[in-house]
Amino acid sequence: MKKETPNTESVVAIRNLKKGFGPKEVLKDVSLDLKKQENLVVLGKSGTGKSVLIKCIVRLLRADAGEISVFGEEINGLDKPALDDIRKRIGFLFQSAALYDSMTVRENLEFPLRRIRKGLSEQEIDQKVHDALENVGLVEAIDKMPSELSGGMRKRIGLARTIIVDPEIILYDEPTTGLDPVTSNEISILINEIQQKYKASSIIITHDMECVRTVADRIIMLKEGAVYKEGSFKEFQGGDDDYINSFFKPQNTELNKN
């Protein structure tokens, strides 16, 4: 599928973000912009604060210092109703999919819909649930409980729950982690389709280089709590930086059996 060129308008602008937990400073100085209709991949080793970064964007975590502007609004200065208004325009796919265990797939999808898109008729809600499930190819799972789903199915349902409210920004926290290569690839393709279909801007946190190759318009690499390098997939490949190459080149070649 041919990708559209991202717009230059920033929907998320982060400046000098700092966030720590007790004595440990996780994010030391992060600045980045998410352009409209762009897929921005944030790369980095575990513990470099990638998940913390996107949780700060929706204020699930409060930044210690710095500015986070979403749709032009400084997120840390908002009161609860204004924050909720911003959150209604953002979708968040959690690493564990975070499906509500006590609800069926249908109820999971209806949950954000009834709260964010108030005033929809029952028929419209049914249609939207059906459409969202069709988009992720899991219409048959509509009446299942999350405990009956496989890891890949949970991720897809999580994705359906994220897109059902037509968010303008989608934050993906390791969408392909723990999945087999085939399912990972399907999820990556789905992320691209969602970008095209919903015109959404996305921040994708992942370690999966195949996913990066498929979805990234731009990549930002974090190291020790700060932005280490920014560029396209091509710009990251083939350099002589050992740290970057450790992500982009096959590892442990001397240990490979074949």
Binding site: D84, K88, I90, F94, Y100, D101, F111, I116
Partner: peptide, 15 residues
Amino acid sequence: MRVTEQIDAMEVSST
């Protein structure tokens, strides 16, 4: 629910 981020998911859904 807290450990599996379900409570966070609720907050993000403006609930």
